[in-house]
Design a protein around this nucleic acid. Sequence first.
DNA 1: CTGCTGCTCGGGCAAATTTCCCAAGCCGAT
DNA 2: ATCGGCTTGGGAAATTTGCCCGAGCAGCAG
Lengths: 217, 217
Amino acid sequence: MTEVAATGISVLLVDDHPIVRQGYRRVLESQGDLHVVAEADNAADAYGAFKVHDPDVVVMDISMPGASGLEAIRNIRARSPRARILVFTMHNEAVLVKAAFSAGASGFVTKSSEPSAVVTAIRSVARGERAMSDDIAHVLAEDSLSPTGSVLDQLGEREIEILRQFAGGATTEQIASHLNLSVKTVQNYHYLIKTKTGARTDAQLVRLAATCGLTKI
Amino acid sequence: MTEVAATGISVLLVDDHPIVRQGYRRVLESQGDLHVVAEADNAADAYGAFKVHDPDVVVMDISMPGASGLEAIRNIRARSPRARILVFTMHNEAVLVKAAFSAGASGFVTKSSEPSAVVTAIRSVARGERAMSDDIAHVLAEDSLSPTGSVLDQLGEREIEILRQFAGGATTEQIASHLNLSVKTVQNYHYLIKTKTGARTDAQLVRLAATCGLTKI
DNA sequence: CTGCTGCTCGGGCAAATTTCCCAAGCCGAT
DNA sequence: ATCGGCTTGGGAAATTTGCCCGAGCAGCAG
């Protein structure tokens, strides 16, 4: 790798909140071996920054406005299979975790984890290992044992993404433009999600998303 | 008052959850001076039970299916101005508290309060005093100081009630029949609430209701 | 390889709902 | 007495929903 890698681990921070990025940057840099070489606040910029800086690890929040973070993962991995991506988000739904790993993520750490867990995970991921925080391991473990998975398990990745944005308050048009879909498609997903989950009302959908941790409120 | 009153305080419990009523009944009766003489699980039955048993204090959850608990309070007070009503609910929004007191309630205690707070409040209310739990006092105090009140302060009582039921997952028809309104009126309220609060989406409305404590999720 | 299945994406269309404007009764305040 | 605000609903246009459909594409079993 580059000389940067020789002297430590270079990191690309992707998160839509500047203050958050600033905070994490300080935490990571105080470690000595971690260097934040770039930041991005959306999925599109993330790949551009990745190409320019070729970081050892991408630390990415997948709940950003704009395209799905999962798509960003796939984008980066498709063009740079050696990329190491650590998902760092507040969500802890098993479906989301599984989707992230199958999209090519190397690790998954929740924002409620100790700062040290993030640092540890970054080092693990940089070594090419898989990493996840304890709570994620528990969620995954629970999920693998439960025959009757979460309601969200019935939903596809696109459906999850649309449900998240919808429950977050986005309009149909906003979701359509975020995801580059036709309004019609989003409407169809909306309907599909309702029938799959059994929600009779948009409000029930929001509550469902909230109780499943898809949305914070 | 009756001989029952002479030997203690008679209580009418109004709550839509049987288990909840059962639990409170035990708590209250273990006090020695409190006697639950009747229960009701809806607003309509509440007045009937009140007439029959003439309790010293009505302990009432105002978030029940059917007519608004506030209407039940007005009903009872209109026919029996000497009635003492203690509102006992999980909601702690200033608007709701104010609405309850102006509807004729003598006290307001949240369900998150210590059991002893309820007992104390019942005794206070029975003596003709006003009573409220500490958290309610804080909410009211905060509210009186804040020039920029909660978004809910823009809403009328009916609007609040409809918003609560809507955010709770009820369909327009269900709300209409609960409140004995035409579907059309509920739709108009729905629209009015959205414009008043600035919510562009049903999901935003639910989130608003949740952050204001109108709904638990 | 060949089907099968499931996800994604969207068209179509009738039925339902939402949006927005308006009116009337009621009640409290000025 | 009048004004404003709450409550209740009608009406009509605009949108969305509910369901049905087909196509492309990936993965997977036979």
